[in-house]
Write a protein that binds this DNA or RNA. Sequence first.
DNA 1: CTGAAAGCGCTTACAG
DNA 2: CTGAAAGCGCTTACAG
Lengths: 339, 339
Amino acid sequence: MITIYDIAKKTGYSAPTVSKALNGTGGLSPETRRKILKSAEEMGYSPNMTARALSTKKSYLIGIIFEDLYMQRGFEHPLFGGVLTKFRSEVEASGYDLIFISTSFGDTKVNSYVEHCKLRNVDAVVIINPLDDYSKIIELAKSDIPCVSTNDLVPGIPAVITDNESAGFDAGEFLIKNGHTKIAYIAGSSNEYSQAADERLTGLRRALTKHNLQLEDKNIERCSLWTREAGESAMKNILSRNTDITAVFAANDNMAIGAMNYCKQFGLKVPEDISFVGFDDENFSEFYQPALTTFSQNRKLIAELSEEILMNQLIGVPVKDCIRVPADFIVRDSVRKIC
Amino acid sequence: MITIYDIAKKTGYSAPTVSKALNGTGGLSPETRRKILKSAEEMGYSPNMTARALSTKKSYLIGIIFEDLYMQRGFEHPLFGGVLTKFRSEVEASGYDLIFISTSFGDTKVNSYVEHCKLRNVDAVVIINPLDDYSKIIELAKSDIPCVSTNDLVPGIPAVITDNESAGFDAGEFLIKNGHTKIAYIAGSSNEYSQAADERLTGLRRALTKHNLQLEDKNIERCSLWTREAGESAMKNILSRNTDITAVFAANDNMAIGAMNYCKQFGLKVPEDISFVGFDDENFSEFYQPALTTFSQNRKLIAELSEEILMNQLIGVPVKDCIRVPADFIVRDSVRKIC
DNA sequence: CTGAAAGCGCTTACAG
DNA sequence: CTGAAAGCGCTTACAG
């Protein structure tokens, strides 16, 4: 490993001068700067970020909070995986590296995101998806570490989130346009900070209201999970109360598929007897029979905008509290037009 | 931020003594150790890994090489995403953090994995999938940085890889058992370091030979990519030469689906007229019509074993050059039994 | 059992 | 324009 002292010795300058040449700071003469840079190049010098970080307090490290307890899909999660892929390429182009932040770190019993961030000296963090225990995110929001969130709306943390309400509205409009009036809604849980399920419902309601229709309570089913099994049991519950619905908006494709499977078992044909709209555009959704009509969240745009927000915070430019990103509606074969 | 000097001042001991207490090193009296630990706890001390790394040369950082130029699926890649998910949890339990390593780093024109590793002082690196330019991996293999690879076989780097040949053999046996004798093979490219496609072919050949059958050259199609489109054109080429094959082993599900789509277009029914076995068990494969018979690579085991190999290298325990991990065969509906 | 000294590789005032 | 000094937070010989 070659250091600035090696370069200093070789060129006859002092270490601080070498440092300034390398960083383009300080009023060095063009000549010395050139000589130092040339030697550095020849000697194959590369800086030690650890030492630099220690003295400047800037690590060029961005922490990633990425968990998926809940869908258990890890990096293959239909939204989070895609966001991370694009976020990584953006951040690397800006000269930062990505490090995973957890609530634990080996035997040093770190027990919070903030602590792990301090430990590693990260400059900022992107919250792609946190654990269920939001107290640790609140703690992070209150710290002085710049953050951005791509899924949750937490006070004090700028967010870039899919415009769920508009998507819900679009789903409603589409179903109504296709002649459906008795519509059901199924979704997983939401909480104070993660409200996608509620927002999609609000949008759906707005569309129905606009057309003087109603979403009856008995046609709404909320589960704690967002799994296929949850979709199945939600559908079962709805059909046990009410069999005259003609369409279902499911808040994710997983649940849609569980629900459609149940309908088929129940003796209903999809979409002849009952239509479906999902959410997420999982890569299996085009292959399900019938191919599922759904929404694709704009993962790339979410990643780009959140990276921009982080970088702006790092240079002190004010940022918006929350940017909503439209989802793309993908029409396939799971909705039937009824006259 | 509170440092060991703060603890030193508060307890009346020196910084080195505090350091020793915190690390459990040096022959401190139980009493001082207890007092220092207690104060550290009370003051909410957490160590600065950057400073520690600078003085010890140990960062507790594992570099991840993860690219997917080739399938363009990023973290959603059917093999790599799952390996990374599990690898991360293993490594974190061992007290290490994960950082992404690229061939570039901002304006400091880092241009190699080794350089990026030195920059960040990583203790070891896991190669989940590199870029096509293997010279940079060779350079890494020659460096003194401990590595493990989960997909490629590079001299000097221990590897944990799916037992592709056995899987190919199993695919062959299964097809033969179901009465197929005219079998085709389609796959993407391979190279010196990444030989999955060749290995699967070797296994298939071995099964055929065992039963005195032959895999004719005109029934083998190799593409540069592993995409759906590649599968489609491979199938087209084979059918243009020879229409009496009854089964195809495709080296990944993507290609299998492209090929099946082409067959359908061509007027062949799957599996009535032509049977298929794929590889990877993508999450859409169960939904394709017919549901695809395929292999699932054991991502969790690959991750566990490779983490173990890395940790062993870190403590100087000798490790194996290459461990092969069996893939699970998943029988669905895409192979027909012909009498 | 404890601490003074030096060092890890770098940068930032400050002086000249 | 250049360099001596001090410091970032920690650890490792070494001395007592």
